[in-house]
């Protein structure tokens, strides 16, 4: 087990060098979160904005609301449904990107070194295109008058177009396509460092292929899988654009719900409370990931 180098002591010059980065982190990341936290305990203004009266109503309204007819407290069913859909779709996206991304990463890592760059470039190529254009490309594929439906119609496999656009399926396809590179790259990075002679040793000891994959390769590249999962899960959870364009505006994700509060519904404090809730879900997910990753990494180190 290689010992980690000790972190160097922080002297004056180093502290000075750190300051700009710390400033940016403080001003660019911490300060906005504090503003959001402050807004979440204020009262919504009549025409957007906030009025400066402290109220914890917004936090309650994240999960519960007063029925406007009977005036009794009930669960905010719409919010919970949107929460559930977001978590479900983010999880499924992570799973799908892994299923598609792992073989791709494996394939690239087992090419001769001078060819890998070409394959990697192909994976990253979509990143050079604007996100919206990529989503509209998916739309062209799956719309009723789109490429897939027209192809299936022309070969007689179906009689009427399959409704794929504006469904949860469409959102899932869109997100999987968008975030696939974020899964492939970290897995590839850890696989590239993996010594494939270990796998060969496994074969020499008569381990079947699946067993080698399970007990030799997967444990070694686990950090890459975890990093990839985090990179995919978090943006999927907060997705706004894919759900808006491919979901047809009636399969809301958390991002859309938050967006509505700052726009047409003019309830900034509730929007702020919902944003922090999203942040909390992400934090909990991160802790779980890191815990499970950390706990099992020790013996292999």
């Amino acid at each position: 087990m290689a010992t980690r180098p000790k972190p160097p002591a922080v002297d004056g010059a180093r502290a000075a060098l750190l300051t700009p980065a710390l400033l940016i982190v403080t001003l660019g990341a911490l300060a906005p979160v504090l503003v959001i936290a402050l807004y979440s305990i204020l009262t919504p203004g009549d025409y957007g904005g906030v009025s400066w009266t402290v109220s914890f109503q917004n936090w309650l309204n994240v999960i519960a609301e007063r029925d406007f007819l009977t005036d009794e407290m009930t669960l905010a069913a719409a919010h919970l449904e949107i929460f559930w859909r977001s978590v479900k779709l983010a999880f499924l996206t992570t799973l799908l990107t892994f299923i598609f991304g792992f073989p791709a990463a494996y394939f690239i890592a087992t090419r001769p070194p001078h060819r890998r760059d070409l394959w990697l470039m192909l994976i990253m190529l979509p990143f050079w295109t604007n996100l919206l254009i990529r989503i509209f490309a998916v739309m062209q594929l799956i719309r009723n008058d789109g490429i897939i439906n027209n192809l299936l119609l022309s070969i007689g496999a179906i009689e009427a177009p399959i409704q794929m656009l504006y469904t949860e399926f469409a959102v899932l396809v869109g997100m999987t396509y968008l975030y696939l590179p974020l899964m492939v790259l970290p897995i590839y990075a850890s696989m590239e460092r993996f010594d494939f002679s270990l796998a060969e040793a496994g074969y020499d000891l008569y381990a079947p292929r699946l067993r080698v994959l399970q007990q030799v390769i997967l444990p070694a590249i686990k950090p890459g899988i975890i990093a990839g999962s985090i990179l995919v899960f978090i943006p999927s959870l907060g997705d706004y654009v894919v759900a808006r364009v491919l979901g047809g505006g009636k399969q809301l994700m958390l991002g859309n719900l938050i967006g509505m509060q700052f726009g047409e519904l003019r309830n900034w404090p509730l929007g702020a409370a919902l944003s922090l809730t999203l942040l909390a879900i992400v934090a909990v997910a991160m802790v779980i990931y890191v815990r499970t990753a950390g706990a099992e990494e020790e013996p292999h180190g």
């Binding site: 406007f68 919010h79 449904e81 949107i82 809301l252 519904l265 003019r266």
Partner: peptide
């Protein structure tokens, strides 16, 4: 009025979810 808009917002969230 803001009071009525508040009810409409709630209905709208239930519709759009």
């Amino acid at each position: 009025s803001p009071e009525i808009e508040k009810i409409y917002s709630r209905i709208w969230t239930d519709v759009k979810k």
